[in-house]
């Protein structure tokens, strides 16, 4: 009791946060797991159906496709984002003229509304009048139906996703690069190391905690992609279901079609997926991440 009273002010300080967390997150979490085993109506009325939602999910071709697509986006997107943003951050960290201008240019997509990015790329991808088809036909390639051809649409989305997340990740990596003490570089230069050796033997290992962080954050982001797919192709494109991700399908099931229980089951599968992949990343990090 005495201990509790001594802690009373501590509880008061966290009370506002935890009242919200407990209701809107902890309770919601439990509720959502519960919903997954029920048919849930629009007003929250429930009938228990056991594992039916889950067994239906794995026979649902659009869900399977959403699952595969999500692996496609994350599996290709994360390595691309990591490699491109590390290279770009390294270049932007060189002392050259116009550095500030280059940086501003690269950072702009990071602060742009996803909705505007969707509108913009939809127009760039326009099969008749779009800039991209114009440019590639100048280069001698066939114009493509970027957002309506089921075989291409996932690639078109991948490009936009990588484009917008590289911009954000470069900012984080650049800060990581600036925290590397110049002592290491000076020592390497005295020992006569060349640029490539410095990059691979010094910069990369010392940057590896930040790279790991970027890999985790972009993996979680890619496993939850929604905005770009929703905004670029939902309306008026038959390719929507070919581009579907776990979160877009979650939205369609739970809110467009009001299948709340089914939607809850989809979100539980995403949770398990994200946990498993994040866990694996943490296991693997011991092999390549160096903390000083």
């Amino acid at each position: 009791m005495k201990r509790f009273r001594a802690g009373l002010s501590g509880y008061l300080f966290i009370a506002p946060l935890f009242s919200g967390l407990l209701l809107l997150y902890v309770y919601a979490f439990v509720q959502n797991i519960f919903y997954g085993f029920n048919d849930v109506g629009v007003f929250g009325e429930r009938t228990f159906v056991g594992l039916e939602n889950y067994s239906e999910l794995f026979q649902d071709p659009i869900f399977i496709r959403s699952l595969i697509n999500t692996f496609f986006y994350a599996g290709l997107g994360v390595p691309l984002v990591v490699v491109i943003s590390v290279c770009l951050a390294w270049l932007l960290n060189q002392k050259i003229k116009g550095q500030a201008l280059y940086r501003t240019a690269v950072f702009i997509p990071a602060i742009t509304l996803p909705a505007a990015i969707g509108l913009l790329w939809r127009w760039l991808y326009n099969s008749q009048y779009g800039l991209i088809n114009f440019l590639i036909s100048k280069l001698g390639f066939e114009p493509k139906a970027w957002i309506s051809d089921p075989d291409i649409v996932r690639w078109s989305i991948l490009i936009v996703l990588v484009w917008s997340s590289v911009s954000y990740m470069v900012i984080i990596l650049l800060a990581g690069l600036q925290r590397i003490s110049s002592v290491y570089y000076d020592a390497a230069q005295i020992d006569g190391a060349n640029t490539r050796q410095i990059f691979f033997k010094i910069t990369l290992p010392l940057l590896s905690p930040t790279i790991f962080f970027v890999a985790i954050v972009s993996m979680i982001g890619f496993l939850q992609v929604f905005d770009v797919i929703f905004l670029m192709i939902r309306d008026g494109s038959v390719a929507y279901q070919y581009a579907s991700s776990l979160v877009t399908y979650f939205y369609e099931a739970a809110f467009a079609q009001n299948l709340r229980g089914y939607g809850a089951a989809i979100s539980v599968i995403s949770l398990i997926l994200i946990f498993a992949i994040t866990f694996m990343q943490f296991r693997l990090q011991k092999r390549w991440v160096h903390y000083d």
């Binding site: 309770y27 919601a28 979490f29 959502n32 919903y35 979160v247 809110f255 949770l271």
Partner: peptide, 14 residues
């Protein structure tokens, strides 16, 4: 660590 969409249906209900 939990992805946001886990909470959305209950949050909508609440």
């Amino acid at each position: 660590m939990v992805p946001g969409q886990i909470f959305l249906i209950p949050q909508f209900q609440i």
